[in-house]
Amino acid sequence: MEGGHSEKMYEMLLRIRMVEERIGELYAEQQMRCPVHLSIGQEAVAAGVCEALGKKDTVMSGHRAHAHYLAKGGNLKKMVAEIYGRETGCCMGRGGSMHLVDLRANFIGSTPIVGGTIPIAMGLVWAAKMKKEKQVSVIFLGEGTTEEGVFHESLNFAALHNLRVLFVCENNLYSVYTPLNERQSNRPRTGIAKANGLYADVGDGNKALEVYEKTQKALQHIRSDRGPAFLEFSTYRWREHCGPNYDNALGYRTEEEFELWKKTDPLVQLEKAGKFTEEYTVSVRSRLDKEIAEAFAFAKKSPYPKKSEINPRLSYAE
Protein backbone atom coordinates (compact mmCIF):
# COMPACT_ATOMS: atom_id res chain seq x y z
CA MET A 1 0.00 0.00 0.00
CA GLU A 2 1.35 3.38 -1.01
CA GLY A 3 1.85 5.94 1.70
CA GLY A 4 -1.09 8.06 2.72
CA HIS A 5 -3.98 5.79 1.79
CA SER A 6 -4.28 4.29 5.27
CA GLU A 7 -4.31 7.72 6.86
CA LYS A 8 -6.81 9.07 4.36
CA MET A 9 -9.14 6.13 4.86
CA TYR A 10 -8.74 6.34 8.61
CA GLU A 11 -9.57 10.02 8.65
CA MET A 12 -12.59 9.46 6.42
CA LEU A 13 -13.80 6.48 8.40
CA LEU A 14 -13.46 8.38 11.66
CA ARG A 15 -15.12 11.42 10.12
CA ILE A 16 -18.14 9.38 9.04
CA ARG A 17 -18.30 7.73 12.49
CA MET A 18 -18.17 11.06 14.29
CA VAL A 19 -20.75 12.71 12.02
CA GLU A 20 -23.15 9.81 12.48
CA GLU A 21 -22.62 9.78 16.23
CA ARG A 22 -23.32 13.50 16.37
CA ILE A 23 -26.54 13.00 14.44
CA GLY A 24 -27.40 10.27 16.93
CA GLU A 25 -26.71 12.56 19.88
CA LEU A 26 -28.69 15.50 18.56
CA TYR A 27 -31.59 13.66 16.93
CA ALA A 28 -33.59 13.81 20.15
CA GLU A 29 -33.67 17.61 19.88
CA GLN A 30 -36.32 17.03 17.18
CA GLN A 31 -34.68 19.47 14.82
CA MET A 32 -33.65 16.85 12.29
CA ARG A 33 -37.19 16.10 11.21
CA CYS A 34 -36.61 13.36 8.67
CA PRO A 35 -35.71 9.68 8.75
CA VAL A 36 -31.98 8.99 9.25
CA HIS A 37 -30.30 5.69 8.38
CA LEU A 38 -26.95 5.78 10.12
CA SER A 39 -23.88 4.08 8.69
CA ILE A 40 -22.15 3.35 12.01
CA GLY A 41 -20.41 0.00 11.77
CA GLN A 42 -20.44 -0.01 7.96
CA GLU A 43 -18.09 2.92 7.30
CA ALA A 44 -15.10 0.95 6.04
CA VAL A 45 -16.83 -0.09 2.82
CA ALA A 46 -17.51 3.52 1.86
CA ALA A 47 -14.05 4.70 2.92
CA GLY A 48 -12.21 1.82 1.23
CA VAL A 49 -14.10 1.89 -2.06
CA CYS A 50 -14.01 5.67 -2.48
CA GLU A 51 -10.30 5.85 -1.65
CA ALA A 52 -9.68 3.71 -4.73
CA LEU A 53 -11.76 5.96 -7.02
CA GLY A 54 -10.73 8.91 -9.13
CA LYS A 55 -12.39 12.31 -8.99
CA LYS A 56 -14.26 11.74 -12.28
CA ASP A 57 -15.68 8.40 -11.17
CA THR A 58 -19.25 8.74 -9.99
CA VAL A 59 -21.05 7.30 -6.99
CA MET A 60 -24.73 6.67 -6.33
CA SER A 61 -26.42 5.10 -3.35
CA GLY A 62 -29.62 4.26 -1.52
CA HIS A 63 -31.29 5.18 1.76
CA ARG A 64 -28.21 4.62 3.97
CA ALA A 65 -25.99 7.01 2.06
CA HIS A 66 -24.31 9.41 4.50
CA ALA A 67 -21.07 7.39 4.43
CA HIS A 68 -20.98 7.13 0.64
CA TYR A 69 -21.67 10.82 0.17
CA LEU A 70 -18.96 11.84 2.61
CA ALA A 71 -16.42 9.31 1.36
CA LYS A 72 -16.81 10.54 -2.22
CA GLY A 73 -16.10 14.05 -1.01
CA GLY A 74 -19.63 15.35 -0.53
CA ASN A 75 -19.85 18.66 1.30
CA LEU A 76 -20.47 18.02 5.01
CA LYS A 77 -22.14 21.34 5.79
CA LYS A 78 -24.62 20.87 2.96
CA MET A 79 -25.44 17.34 4.08
CA VAL A 80 -26.10 18.35 7.67
CA ALA A 81 -28.12 21.36 6.54
CA GLU A 82 -30.17 19.06 4.32
CA ILE A 83 -30.93 16.77 7.24
CA TYR A 84 -32.00 19.87 9.17
CA GLY A 85 -34.29 20.81 6.24
CA ARG A 86 -32.56 24.12 5.59
CA GLU A 87 -32.30 26.05 2.32
CA THR A 88 -28.51 25.70 2.44
CA GLY A 89 -28.85 21.91 2.21
CA CYS A 90 -27.56 19.94 -0.75
CA CYS A 91 -31.14 19.65 -2.08
CA MET A 92 -32.31 23.01 -0.70
CA GLY A 93 -34.35 21.20 1.93
CA ARG A 94 -36.37 19.22 -0.60
CA GLY A 95 -34.66 15.91 -0.06
CA GLY A 96 -33.66 15.26 3.54
CA SER A 97 -31.24 12.56 4.64
CA MET A 98 -32.47 10.06 2.05
CA HIS A 99 -31.76 12.32 -0.94
CA LEU A 100 -28.17 13.45 -1.05
CA VAL A 101 -26.31 14.93 -3.99
CA ASP A 102 -23.04 16.73 -4.57
CA LEU A 103 -22.34 17.07 -8.26
CA ARG A 104 -18.97 18.80 -7.65
CA ALA A 105 -17.82 15.63 -5.94
CA ASN A 106 -19.49 13.43 -8.57
CA PHE A 107 -21.85 12.02 -5.98
CA ILE A 108 -24.80 11.93 -8.37
CA GLY A 109 -27.57 11.05 -5.97
CA SER A 110 -29.11 8.69 -3.46
CA THR A 111 -32.75 7.70 -3.10
CA PRO A 112 -34.63 5.43 -0.70
CA ILE A 113 -36.43 3.09 -3.10
CA VAL A 114 -34.42 -0.10 -2.79
CA GLY A 115 -32.64 -0.64 -6.11
CA GLY A 116 -33.93 2.62 -7.54
CA THR A 117 -30.55 4.15 -8.30
CA ILE A 118 -28.94 0.99 -9.70
CA PRO A 119 -30.09 1.46 -13.30
CA ILE A 120 -29.50 5.20 -13.14
CA ALA A 121 -25.89 4.61 -12.11
CA MET A 122 -25.64 2.21 -15.02
CA GLY A 123 -27.17 4.81 -17.33
CA LEU A 124 -24.44 7.28 -16.41
CA VAL A 125 -21.80 5.07 -17.97
CA TRP A 126 -24.09 3.92 -20.78
CA ALA A 127 -24.10 7.61 -21.73
CA ALA A 128 -20.35 7.76 -21.11
CA LYS A 129 -19.88 4.92 -23.56
CA MET A 130 -21.93 6.76 -26.18
CA LYS A 131 -19.85 9.91 -25.52
CA LYS A 132 -16.59 7.94 -25.40
CA GLU A 133 -15.84 8.95 -21.81
CA LYS A 134 -14.00 6.61 -19.49
CA GLN A 135 -15.15 7.10 -15.90
CA VAL A 136 -16.41 4.30 -13.69
CA SER A 137 -19.83 4.42 -12.05
CA VAL A 138 -20.08 2.94 -8.57
CA ILE A 139 -23.42 1.92 -7.12
CA PHE A 140 -23.64 1.08 -3.44
CA LEU A 141 -26.42 -1.32 -2.54
CA GLY A 142 -27.44 -3.54 0.33
CA GLU A 143 -27.80 -7.29 0.13
CA GLY A 144 -31.59 -6.83 0.22
CA THR A 145 -31.34 -5.00 -3.08
CA THR A 146 -30.13 -8.19 -4.74
CA GLU A 147 -33.71 -9.46 -4.26
CA GLU A 148 -35.07 -6.73 -6.54
CA GLY A 149 -35.69 -7.47 -10.20
CA VAL A 150 -34.00 -4.28 -11.30
CA PHE A 151 -30.70 -5.53 -9.86
CA HIS A 152 -30.79 -8.59 -12.11
CA GLU A 153 -31.95 -6.56 -15.11
CA SER A 154 -29.07 -4.18 -14.59
CA LEU A 155 -26.38 -6.86 -14.18
CA ASN A 156 -27.40 -8.27 -17.53
CA PHE A 157 -27.42 -4.98 -19.40
CA ALA A 158 -24.15 -3.78 -17.85
CA ALA A 159 -22.43 -7.01 -18.88
CA LEU A 160 -24.11 -7.12 -22.30
CA HIS A 161 -22.63 -3.76 -23.23
CA ASN A 162 -19.44 -3.92 -21.17
CA LEU A 163 -20.41 -0.87 -19.14
CA ARG A 164 -17.99 0.51 -16.58
CA VAL A 165 -20.10 -0.20 -13.52
CA LEU A 166 -18.89 -1.34 -10.11
CA PHE A 167 -21.69 -2.82 -8.02
CA VAL A 168 -20.74 -2.68 -4.34
CA CYS A 169 -22.94 -4.76 -2.07
CA GLU A 170 -22.81 -4.13 1.67
CA ASN A 171 -24.15 -7.29 3.25
CA ASN A 172 -25.27 -6.33 6.75
CA LEU A 173 -27.46 -9.45 7.08
CA TYR A 174 -30.76 -7.67 7.75
CA SER A 175 -33.42 -5.92 5.75
CA VAL A 176 -34.84 -3.77 8.55
CA TYR A 177 -35.51 -6.65 11.01
CA THR A 178 -35.75 -9.53 8.55
CA PRO A 179 -32.68 -11.77 8.41
CA LEU A 180 -31.12 -12.89 5.17
CA ASN A 181 -32.19 -16.52 5.59
CA GLU A 182 -35.85 -15.51 5.55
CA ARG A 183 -35.35 -13.68 2.29
CA GLN A 184 -32.87 -15.54 0.16
CA SER A 185 -31.99 -19.12 -0.56
CA ASN A 186 -28.47 -20.11 0.36
CA ARG A 187 -27.08 -18.56 -2.77
CA PRO A 188 -23.87 -16.65 -3.22
CA ARG A 189 -24.67 -13.30 -4.77
CA THR A 190 -21.28 -13.42 -6.46
CA GLY A 191 -22.65 -16.46 -8.31
CA ILE A 192 -25.49 -14.34 -9.66
CA ALA A 193 -22.99 -11.74 -10.81
CA LYS A 194 -20.68 -14.33 -12.37
CA ALA A 195 -23.58 -15.99 -14.16
CA ASN A 196 -24.28 -12.62 -15.78
CA GLY A 197 -20.66 -12.34 -16.87
CA LEU A 198 -19.38 -9.96 -14.22
CA TYR A 199 -16.13 -10.07 -12.29
CA ALA A 200 -17.13 -10.89 -8.73
CA ASP A 201 -15.42 -11.11 -5.37
CA VAL A 202 -16.26 -11.05 -1.67
CA GLY A 203 -14.39 -9.42 1.17
CA ASP A 204 -14.43 -8.37 4.81
CA GLY A 205 -16.24 -5.07 4.83
CA ASN A 206 -14.92 -4.16 8.23
CA LYS A 207 -11.34 -4.16 7.01
CA ALA A 208 -10.85 -0.91 5.10
CA LEU A 209 -7.52 -2.00 3.63
CA GLU A 210 -9.04 -5.17 2.23
CA VAL A 211 -11.94 -3.21 0.79
CA TYR A 212 -9.50 -0.80 -0.83
CA GLU A 213 -7.38 -3.56 -2.35
CA LYS A 214 -10.34 -5.57 -3.65
CA THR A 215 -11.81 -2.42 -5.14
CA GLN A 216 -8.54 -1.61 -6.86
CA LYS A 217 -8.50 -5.05 -8.45
CA ALA A 218 -12.11 -4.74 -9.59
CA LEU A 219 -11.40 -1.28 -11.01
CA GLN A 220 -8.43 -2.62 -12.96
CA HIS A 221 -10.75 -5.20 -14.49
CA ILE A 222 -13.33 -2.54 -15.35
CA ARG A 223 -10.86 0.05 -16.65
CA SER A 224 -9.27 -2.49 -18.96
CA ASP A 225 -12.74 -2.94 -20.50
CA ARG A 226 -13.10 -6.54 -19.42
CA GLY A 227 -16.59 -5.79 -18.11
CA PRO A 228 -18.47 -4.63 -15.02
CA ALA A 229 -17.71 -5.96 -11.53
CA PHE A 230 -19.59 -6.93 -8.39
CA LEU A 231 -18.07 -6.83 -4.91
CA GLU A 232 -19.81 -8.01 -1.77
CA PHE A 233 -18.49 -6.91 1.61
CA SER A 234 -19.77 -8.35 4.85
CA THR A 235 -20.45 -5.79 7.54
CA TYR A 236 -22.93 -4.98 10.29
CA ARG A 237 -25.25 -2.12 11.16
CA TRP A 238 -24.85 -1.15 14.82
CA ARG A 239 -27.80 1.15 15.34
CA GLU A 240 -31.47 0.64 14.49
CA HIS A 241 -32.48 0.43 10.82
CA CYS A 242 -33.81 3.98 10.90
CA GLY A 243 -33.02 6.35 13.73
CA PRO A 244 -30.33 7.08 16.31
CA ASN A 245 -30.92 4.28 18.82
CA TYR A 246 -29.79 0.74 19.47
CA ASP A 247 -32.59 -1.75 18.89
CA ASN A 248 -31.27 -5.14 19.94
CA ALA A 249 -33.92 -5.23 22.66
CA LEU A 250 -36.52 -5.86 19.96
CA GLY A 251 -35.18 -9.38 19.75
CA TYR A 252 -34.73 -9.70 16.00
CA ARG A 253 -31.02 -10.24 16.55
CA THR A 254 -29.13 -11.40 19.61
CA GLU A 255 -26.95 -9.32 21.88
CA GLU A 256 -24.22 -11.97 21.40
CA GLU A 257 -24.27 -11.53 17.63
CA PHE A 258 -24.10 -7.77 18.04
CA GLU A 259 -21.15 -7.97 20.46
CA LEU A 260 -19.32 -10.33 18.15
CA TRP A 261 -19.61 -7.90 15.26
CA LYS A 262 -18.66 -4.96 17.47
CA LYS A 263 -15.36 -6.69 18.15
CA THR A 264 -14.62 -6.32 14.45
CA ASP A 265 -15.12 -2.53 14.64
CA PRO A 266 -13.74 -1.21 11.34
CA LEU A 267 -12.33 1.88 13.06
CA VAL A 268 -10.37 -0.08 15.67
CA GLN A 269 -9.12 -2.53 13.04
CA LEU A 270 -7.82 0.25 10.83
CA GLU A 271 -6.21 2.02 13.80
CA LYS A 272 -4.29 -1.17 14.57
CA ALA A 273 -3.44 -1.98 10.97
CA GLY A 274 -2.16 1.54 10.37
CA LYS A 275 -0.08 1.52 13.58
CA PHE A 276 -1.11 5.11 14.12
CA THR A 277 0.37 7.00 17.05
CA GLU A 278 -1.92 8.31 19.73
CA GLU A 279 -0.68 11.78 18.99
CA TYR A 280 -1.91 11.40 15.41
CA THR A 281 -5.32 9.97 16.26
CA VAL A 282 -5.93 12.59 18.93
CA SER A 283 -5.06 15.40 16.56
CA VAL A 284 -7.33 13.96 13.84
CA ARG A 285 -10.20 13.68 16.30
CA SER A 286 -9.78 17.21 17.47
CA ARG A 287 -9.67 18.55 13.91
CA LEU A 288 -12.80 16.58 12.96
CA ASP A 289 -14.56 17.67 16.14
CA LYS A 290 -14.11 21.25 15.10
CA GLU A 291 -15.21 20.65 11.50
CA ILE A 292 -18.32 18.76 12.60
CA ALA A 293 -19.26 21.35 15.21
CA GLU A 294 -19.02 24.01 12.53
CA ALA A 295 -21.20 22.01 10.15
CA PHE A 296 -23.94 21.55 12.73
CA ALA A 297 -23.76 25.20 13.73
CA PHE A 298 -24.01 26.19 10.06
CA ALA A 299 -27.06 23.98 9.59
CA LYS A 300 -28.82 25.19 12.71
CA LYS A 301 -28.37 28.84 11.89
CA SER A 302 -29.40 28.42 8.24
CA PRO A 303 -32.96 29.49 7.37
CA TYR A 304 -35.72 27.18 6.21
CA PRO A 305 -36.70 27.45 2.55
CA LYS A 306 -39.20 30.22 1.80
CA LYS A 307 -42.94 29.79 1.50
CA SER A 308 -42.69 30.74 -2.19
CA GLU A 309 -40.89 27.42 -2.70
CA ILE A 310 -44.29 25.71 -2.55
CA ASN A 311 -44.97 26.26 -6.22
CA PRO A 312 -46.04 23.55 -8.68
CA ARG A 313 -43.86 25.11 -11.38
CA LEU A 314 -40.81 23.98 -9.44
CA SER A 315 -41.63 20.39 -10.46
CA TYR A 316 -40.40 21.22 -13.95
CA ALA A 317 -37.17 22.47 -15.45
CA GLU A 318 -37.63 25.57 -17.61
Partner: peptide, 12 residues
Protein backbone atom coordinates in the same frame (compact mmCIF):
# COMPACT_ATOMS: atom_id res chain seq x y z
CA UNK B 1 -33.86 -1.04 -15.54
CA UNK B 2 -33.85 0.42 -19.04
CA UNK B 3 -36.00 3.34 -17.91
CA UNK B 4 -33.55 3.96 -15.08
CA UNK B 5 -30.65 3.67 -17.51
CA UNK B 6 -32.34 6.20 -19.78
CA UNK B 7 -32.74 8.54 -16.80
CA UNK B 8 -29.05 8.10 -16.01
CA UNK B 9 -28.20 8.92 -19.62
CA UNK B 10 -30.55 11.92 -19.56
CA UNK B 11 -28.95 13.44 -16.46
CA UNK B 12 -25.61 12.94 -18.21
Amino acid sequence: AMTGAAIGAAIS
